[in-house]
Protein backbone atom coordinates (compact mmCIF):
# COMPACT_ATOMS: atom_id res chain seq x y z
CA UNK A 1 0.00 0.00 0.00
CA UNK A 2 2.89 2.31 0.78
CA UNK A 3 4.16 2.19 -2.79
CA UNK A 4 0.80 1.92 -4.51
CA UNK A 5 -0.54 5.34 -3.56
CA UNK A 6 2.51 7.43 -4.62
CA UNK A 7 2.74 5.31 -7.78
CA UNK A 8 -0.90 5.95 -8.63
CA UNK A 9 -0.44 9.67 -7.96
CA UNK A 10 2.62 9.72 -10.20
CA UNK A 11 0.87 7.92 -13.05
CA UNK A 12 -2.13 10.23 -12.83
CA UNK A 13 0.12 13.30 -12.82
CA UNK A 14 2.05 11.95 -15.81
CA UNK A 15 -1.16 11.28 -17.73
CA UNK A 16 -2.43 14.74 -16.83
CA UNK A 17 0.76 16.26 -18.25
CA UNK A 18 0.60 14.12 -21.39
CA UNK A 19 -3.07 14.89 -22.01
CA UNK A 20 -3.18 18.55 -20.96
CA UNK A 21 -2.43 20.11 -24.38
CA UNK A 22 -4.59 17.63 -26.27
CA UNK A 23 -7.59 18.20 -24.02
CA UNK A 24 -7.19 21.99 -24.23
CA UNK A 25 -6.91 21.72 -28.01
CA UNK A 26 -10.07 19.64 -28.40
CA UNK A 27 -12.20 21.57 -25.87
CA UNK A 28 -11.46 24.96 -27.39
CA UNK A 29 -12.07 23.71 -30.92
CA UNK A 30 -15.73 23.96 -29.83
CA UNK A 31 -15.26 27.46 -28.42
CA UNK A 32 -18.15 29.80 -29.13
CA UNK A 33 -15.90 32.81 -29.51
CA UNK A 34 -12.87 34.17 -31.35
CA UNK A 35 -10.16 33.03 -28.94
CA UNK A 36 -9.39 29.39 -28.10
CA UNK A 37 -8.50 30.15 -24.47
CA UNK A 38 -10.47 30.29 -21.21
CA UNK A 39 -13.16 31.16 -20.38
CA UNK A 40 -15.10 28.56 -22.35
CA UNK A 41 -18.07 30.37 -23.75
CA UNK A 42 -20.21 27.49 -24.89
CA UNK A 43 -20.33 24.83 -27.58
CA UNK A 44 -20.25 25.77 -31.23
CA UNK A 45 -19.44 23.84 -34.38
CA UNK A 46 -18.72 26.91 -36.49
CA UNK A 47 -14.95 26.34 -36.55
CA UNK A 48 -15.45 22.86 -37.92
CA UNK A 49 -17.77 24.33 -40.51
CA UNK A 50 -15.02 26.83 -41.28
CA UNK A 51 -12.46 24.03 -41.71
CA UNK A 52 -14.57 21.89 -43.99
CA UNK A 53 -15.56 24.84 -46.16
CA UNK A 54 -11.96 26.08 -46.47
CA UNK A 55 -10.98 24.95 -49.96
CA UNK A 56 -7.22 25.43 -49.35
CA UNK A 57 -7.33 23.14 -46.33
CA UNK A 58 -9.42 20.52 -48.10
CA UNK A 59 -7.12 20.60 -51.11
CA UNK A 60 -4.11 20.20 -48.84
CA UNK A 61 -5.82 17.29 -47.11
CA UNK A 62 -6.38 15.53 -50.42
CA UNK A 63 -2.76 16.28 -51.40
CA UNK A 64 -1.52 14.81 -48.13
CA UNK A 65 -3.49 11.61 -48.63
CA UNK A 66 -2.17 11.31 -52.19
CA UNK A 67 1.43 11.97 -51.21
CA UNK A 68 1.04 9.55 -48.29
CA UNK A 69 -0.42 6.72 -50.37
CA UNK A 70 2.03 7.10 -53.26
CA UNK A 71 5.15 7.50 -51.10
CA UNK A 72 4.15 4.72 -48.68
CA UNK A 73 3.46 2.37 -51.59
CA UNK A 74 6.79 3.18 -53.25
CA UNK A 75 8.73 2.88 -49.99
CA UNK A 76 7.07 -0.44 -49.14
CA UNK A 77 7.56 -1.97 -52.60
CA UNK A 78 11.19 -0.85 -52.90
CA UNK A 79 11.92 -1.80 -49.28
CA UNK A 80 10.36 -5.23 -49.62
CA UNK A 81 12.15 -6.03 -52.88
CA UNK A 82 15.50 -4.90 -51.48
CA UNK A 83 14.95 -6.88 -48.27
CA UNK A 84 14.11 -9.94 -50.32
CA UNK A 85 17.22 -9.46 -52.45
CA UNK A 86 19.54 -9.14 -49.47
CA UNK A 87 17.93 -11.90 -47.40
CA UNK A 88 17.50 -14.49 -50.16
CA UNK A 89 20.06 -13.87 -52.86
CA UNK A 90 23.80 -14.03 -52.78
CA UNK A 91 24.96 -10.48 -53.36
CA UNK A 92 28.60 -9.55 -52.88
CA UNK A 93 28.99 -6.65 -50.47
CA UNK A 94 25.52 -7.15 -49.00
CA UNK A 95 26.53 -5.56 -45.69
CA UNK A 96 27.49 -2.31 -47.43
CA UNK A 97 24.15 -2.15 -49.25
CA UNK A 98 22.27 -2.89 -46.05
CA UNK A 99 24.13 -0.06 -44.35
CA UNK A 100 23.49 2.28 -47.27
CA UNK A 101 19.75 1.56 -47.27
CA UNK A 102 19.52 2.26 -43.54
CA UNK A 103 21.69 5.40 -43.66
CA UNK A 104 18.93 8.04 -44.14
CA UNK A 105 17.56 6.99 -40.74
CA UNK A 106 20.53 8.62 -39.02
CA UNK A 107 20.15 12.02 -40.68
CA UNK A 108 17.74 14.74 -39.52
CA UNK A 109 14.74 15.35 -41.78
CA UNK A 110 15.82 18.99 -41.90
CA UNK A 111 19.17 18.12 -43.45
CA UNK A 112 17.62 15.64 -45.90
CA UNK A 113 15.16 18.38 -46.87
CA UNK A 114 17.83 21.01 -47.40
CA UNK A 115 19.92 18.57 -49.46
CA UNK A 116 16.92 17.87 -51.69
CA UNK A 117 16.02 21.56 -51.96
CA UNK A 118 19.53 22.52 -53.07
CA UNK A 119 19.78 19.59 -55.49
CA UNK A 120 16.36 20.22 -57.03
CA UNK A 121 17.13 23.93 -57.36
CA UNK A 122 20.52 23.23 -58.94
CA UNK A 123 19.01 20.82 -61.48
CA UNK A 124 16.08 23.14 -62.24
CA UNK A 125 13.43 20.75 -60.95
CA UNK A 126 10.34 22.78 -59.93
CA UNK A 127 8.96 22.63 -56.39
CA UNK A 128 5.99 20.26 -56.38
CA UNK A 129 4.19 17.44 -54.64
CA UNK A 130 6.38 15.04 -56.61
CA UNK A 131 9.40 16.39 -54.73
CA UNK A 132 7.59 15.68 -51.46
CA UNK A 133 6.92 12.10 -52.58
CA UNK A 134 10.61 11.70 -53.39
CA UNK A 135 11.64 13.02 -49.98
CA UNK A 136 9.13 10.90 -48.11
CA UNK A 137 10.29 7.74 -49.87
CA UNK A 138 13.85 8.60 -48.78
CA UNK A 139 12.84 8.82 -45.11
CA UNK A 140 10.49 5.81 -45.15
CA UNK A 141 12.49 3.40 -47.27
CA UNK A 142 14.89 2.48 -44.41
CA UNK A 143 11.94 1.68 -42.14
CA UNK A 144 10.13 -0.42 -44.75
CA UNK A 145 13.37 -2.19 -45.59
CA UNK A 146 14.20 -2.77 -41.92
CA UNK A 147 10.75 -4.12 -41.06
CA UNK A 148 10.63 -6.47 -44.05
CA UNK A 149 14.24 -7.60 -43.62
CA UNK A 150 13.75 -8.45 -39.95
CA UNK A 151 10.63 -10.48 -40.76
CA UNK A 152 12.13 -12.45 -43.65
CA UNK A 153 12.96 -15.32 -41.36
CA UNK A 154 14.03 -18.87 -42.13
CA UNK A 155 10.55 -20.33 -42.00
CA UNK A 156 9.57 -19.00 -45.42
CA UNK A 157 12.71 -20.31 -47.09
CA UNK A 158 11.46 -23.88 -47.43
CA UNK A 159 8.12 -22.77 -48.85
CA UNK A 160 9.96 -20.66 -51.43
CA UNK A 161 12.30 -23.51 -52.25
CA UNK A 162 9.37 -25.88 -52.66
CA UNK A 163 7.70 -23.48 -55.08
CA UNK A 164 10.94 -23.20 -57.05
CA UNK A 165 11.31 -27.02 -57.15
CA UNK A 166 7.77 -27.28 -58.46
CA UNK A 167 8.78 -25.08 -61.38
CA UNK A 168 7.72 -21.61 -60.31
CA UNK A 169 9.64 -18.76 -61.87
CA UNK A 170 11.42 -16.21 -59.72
CA UNK A 171 8.64 -13.60 -60.00
CA UNK A 172 6.01 -16.27 -59.29
CA UNK A 173 7.82 -17.29 -56.10
CA UNK A 174 7.90 -13.65 -55.07
CA UNK A 175 4.29 -12.80 -55.90
CA UNK A 176 2.56 -16.06 -54.95
CA UNK A 177 4.64 -17.27 -52.00
CA UNK A 178 6.79 -14.55 -50.41
CA UNK A 179 4.34 -11.65 -50.57
CA UNK A 180 1.37 -13.52 -49.03
CA UNK A 181 3.60 -14.91 -46.25
CA UNK A 182 5.08 -11.48 -45.60
CA UNK A 183 1.72 -9.72 -45.60
CA UNK A 184 1.83 -8.49 -41.95
CA UNK A 185 5.29 -6.91 -42.40
CA UNK A 186 4.26 -5.35 -45.71
CA UNK A 187 1.08 -3.88 -44.21
CA UNK A 188 3.01 -2.59 -41.17
CA UNK A 189 5.56 -0.92 -43.47
CA UNK A 190 2.83 0.71 -45.48
CA UNK A 191 0.87 2.05 -42.51
CA UNK A 192 3.96 3.28 -40.69
CA UNK A 193 5.21 5.01 -43.85
CA UNK A 194 1.83 6.57 -44.47
CA UNK A 195 1.56 7.84 -40.89
CA UNK A 196 5.03 9.40 -41.01
CA UNK A 197 4.39 10.98 -44.41
CA UNK A 198 1.00 12.26 -43.22
CA UNK A 199 2.63 14.14 -40.33
CA UNK A 200 5.88 15.19 -42.00
CA UNK A 201 6.33 18.94 -42.24
CA UNK A 202 9.86 20.20 -42.76
CA UNK A 203 10.72 18.40 -46.03
CA UNK A 204 7.25 19.10 -47.45
CA UNK A 205 7.61 22.76 -46.52
CA UNK A 206 11.04 23.13 -48.12
CA UNK A 207 10.26 21.49 -51.46
CA UNK A 208 6.72 22.76 -52.22
CA UNK A 209 5.39 26.09 -53.34
CA UNK A 210 1.82 26.23 -54.70
CA UNK A 211 0.36 22.80 -54.07
CA UNK A 212 1.09 21.93 -50.47
CA UNK A 213 0.40 19.14 -47.99
CA UNK A 214 -1.78 19.51 -44.89
CA UNK A 215 1.03 20.16 -42.36
CA UNK A 216 2.34 22.97 -44.59
CA UNK A 217 -1.13 24.49 -44.83
CA UNK A 218 -1.51 24.20 -41.05
CA UNK A 219 1.84 25.95 -40.68
CA UNK A 220 0.52 28.97 -42.54
CA UNK A 221 -2.56 28.92 -40.28
CA UNK A 222 -0.29 29.01 -37.23
CA UNK A 223 1.07 32.35 -38.32
CA UNK A 224 -2.25 33.96 -37.49
CA UNK A 225 -1.66 33.08 -33.82
CA UNK A 226 -4.29 31.56 -31.56
CA UNK A 227 -7.30 30.68 -33.66
CA UNK A 228 -10.09 28.16 -32.97
CA UNK A 229 -9.91 27.11 -36.63
CA UNK A 230 -6.44 25.72 -35.95
CA UNK A 231 -7.88 23.84 -32.96
CA UNK A 232 -10.56 22.34 -35.18
CA UNK A 233 -8.05 21.30 -37.87
CA UNK A 234 -5.82 19.81 -35.19
CA UNK A 235 -8.71 17.83 -33.75
CA UNK A 236 -9.68 16.53 -37.19
CA UNK A 237 -6.08 15.47 -37.92
CA UNK A 238 -5.90 13.77 -34.51
CA UNK A 239 -9.13 11.89 -35.23
CA UNK A 240 -7.82 10.71 -38.62
CA UNK A 241 -4.51 9.57 -37.10
CA UNK A 242 -6.36 7.75 -34.33
CA UNK A 243 -8.50 5.97 -36.90
CA UNK A 244 -5.32 4.88 -38.70
CA UNK A 245 -3.79 3.58 -35.49
CA UNK A 246 -6.93 1.63 -34.65
CA UNK A 247 -7.05 0.14 -38.15
CA UNK A 248 -3.39 -0.80 -37.81
CA UNK A 249 -3.94 -2.34 -34.38
CA UNK A 250 -7.00 -4.34 -35.48
CA UNK A 251 -5.95 -5.54 -38.91
CA UNK A 252 -2.16 -5.67 -38.89
CA UNK A 253 -0.86 -6.42 -35.43
CA UNK A 254 -3.82 -8.57 -34.38
CA UNK A 255 -3.16 -10.77 -37.41
CA UNK A 256 0.51 -10.93 -36.67
CA UNK A 257 0.05 -12.11 -33.10
CA UNK A 258 -2.50 -14.69 -34.17
CA UNK A 259 -0.27 -16.12 -36.88
Amino acid sequence: MLTVIPAAVYVLAAYAFIYLPVVVLVIFSFQDGRLPVPPFKGVSLRWYHEVFSDSDLMEALVNSVMVGVVSATLATVLGFLAAHALARHRIPGAVVFQWLLMAPLSVSYLIIGIGLLITFTATGMPKSLLSVVIGHVVINLPLAFGICYSQLGGHQVSAERAARDLGAREWQVLALVSVPMMWPAIAASFFLSFTLSWDEFIIAWLVTRFDVTLPVEIWSLLRSGLDPTTNAVGTVVFAISMALVIVMELFVFRRKTRA
Partner: peptide, 21 residues
Protein backbone atom coordinates in the same frame (compact mmCIF):
# COMPACT_ATOMS: atom_id res chain seq x y z
CA UNK B 1 17.45 -11.68 -59.97
CA UNK B 2 18.88 -10.46 -56.67
CA UNK B 3 20.45 -7.44 -58.33
CA UNK B 4 17.23 -6.65 -60.18
CA UNK B 5 15.30 -6.67 -56.89
CA UNK B 6 17.87 -4.56 -55.10
CA UNK B 7 18.46 -2.00 -57.86
CA UNK B 8 15.35 0.21 -57.50
CA UNK B 9 15.83 0.87 -53.78
CA UNK B 10 19.55 1.35 -54.22
CA UNK B 11 19.13 3.78 -57.11
CA UNK B 12 16.55 5.75 -55.12
CA UNK B 13 18.87 6.11 -52.14
CA UNK B 14 21.80 7.01 -54.41
CA UNK B 15 19.86 9.60 -56.42
CA UNK B 16 17.90 11.25 -53.62
CA UNK B 17 20.08 10.77 -50.57
CA UNK B 18 23.73 10.22 -51.50
CA UNK B 19 23.79 12.69 -54.41
CA UNK B 20 22.03 15.51 -52.48
CA UNK B 21 24.49 14.89 -49.69
Amino acid sequence: AGWVLLAPALLWVMAFFVVPF
